[in-house]
């Protein structure tokens, strides 16, 4: 019973860690640069969860003030993550632009092939 309680109380953190580790694995194990960037995006969403999860209060509601409600979730992590998402897409676009340029220069978006091309040169 104790173990079950522990799992339920920390379930969100486990999901966060699973997503984080999955993103990390994709970034390390896959040589394809598009896949690497998608892996980074997954890692990033795990950070969103890591910030939003502690801000939630059970029985609370979204932080839009109304006399009908008393308990609100913490608005501060929402603000931080809201801006982080938009910055995330801006940096993703920068990464994609680099991938496009690498493809023009090397004719490949595989990490291994670009390394090989460098070694030949």
């Amino acid at each position: 019973m104790q173990a079950f309680r522990l799992v339920v109380e920390y379930y969100n953190y486990f999901v966060t860690i699973f997503l984080m580790v999955a993103g990390l694995y994709v970034v390390i194990a896959r040589g394809n640069m598009i896949k690497k960037l998608v892996g980074l995006a997954i890692f990033q969403t795990s950070v969103y969860l890591l910030y939003i999860t502690p801000g939630k209060i059970l029985g609370g509601t979204a932080p839009i003030l109304d006399p009908a409600f008393k308990v609100y979730s913490n608005p501060l992590p929402h603000v931080l993550i809201l801006t982080a998402i938009v910055v995330g897409v801006a940096t993703l676009a920068l990464g994609l632009a680099l991938v496009a340029r690498i493809n023009e220069a090397y004719g490949s978006i595989e990490e291994d092939e670009t390394f090989e091309r460098d070694r030949e040169a």
Binding site: I52, T53, K56, A62, P63, S73, H78, L82, V86
Partner: peptide, 9 residues
């Protein structure tokens, strides 16, 4: 998780 603004973004 009550983060409606974040969800919309």
């Amino acid at each position: 998780l009550d983060a409606v603004d974040v969800a919309m973004t």
